[in-house]
Design a protein around this nucleic acid. Structure first.
Lengths: 131, 131
DNA sequence: GTTAGTAGTGAACTAAAGGTTAGTAGTAAC
DNA sequence: GTTACTACTAACCTTTAGTTCACTACTAAC
């Protein structure tokens, strides 16, 4: 196989790109945090209360990861007492709105398909959790 | 807080939907498999060769999960020797094309942003791997 | 002085995801 | 008879993700 399968060439670009996106946005919490952020929650404890079930440690590490990827800006209001920290979605985070919308729409359609019609969900999911 | 924060109401629907989508499509391999499937790879070993790095065990479990979610159809060609199994993307899998496109585009833009400009990638990623 | 709020961090743990190795059963080529 | 192909699967191991709990340091209210 000297000259590669044209199908491989065709999908290679998409493949790495999708992988990268999943690396940055995947996992249990990253997109939830972004959604909370653009929804208007900006303070640490406020975010922790808004995002049900997240621990301080995970919120902290996830915020750092999002900051590294330019999606969040950490701002320390040193003048206030007590010192308040704000996590603000960057302008760049706006670019995720489409991703969130598409993913959300698909998730909604899929849930309807799985729970409403076929009733054969993935093991232990979609039916029994309304997070 | 008797009447819930309107922001919470506003994002709750999107939240569960996005979560569901990530549950079904998240992880290292699911979307890669779907891409390979719609690209034209249909047989087990063919898929394993096309998707670099995936093990038979993982490919098997992931295909089952995708089948449960109606994205793949498993077809056994019992008449052939040796018995051949084909994994075919369902029509429903077409609905993922938009998701893949949007995610791929974002991933591409993001990689360019991170590696080309800011040069501050997430720890140990995006720069050092060209899968 | 005790409690609660601000924003976290470190250690120790569990759970889940994924990887490695070996092996099944049948066919067919060398 | 050994190797290689078909499509897997069980057992075991490692790695990563996420949880729990305790704790810092400072301020304010009770």
């Amino acid at each position: 196989m000297k000259n590669p399968d044209p199908r491989q060439v065709a999908c290679a670009v998409q493949l790495t790109a999708v992988e990268d996106a999943i690396y940055v946005l995947g996992g249990k919490w990253k997109l939830r945090i972004v959604i909370a952020l653009v929804t208007g929650y900006h303070r640490f404890n406020e975010l922790q209360r808004a995002i049900e079930g997240i621990s301080a440690r995970v919120l902290s590490t996830e915020l750092k990861s999002l900051e590294l990827n330019g999606l969040v800006k950490r701002e320390v209001k040193a003048d206030q007492i007590p010192v308040v920290v704000e996590y603000l979605p960057t302008e760049y985070a706006e670019s995720l709105k489409e991703v969130i919308a598409v993913l959300g729409n698909w998730g909604l359609k899929h849930k309807r398909k799985i729970t409403g019609k076929d009733a054969a969900p993935a093991p232990g999911k979609l039916t029994n959790k309304g997070t």
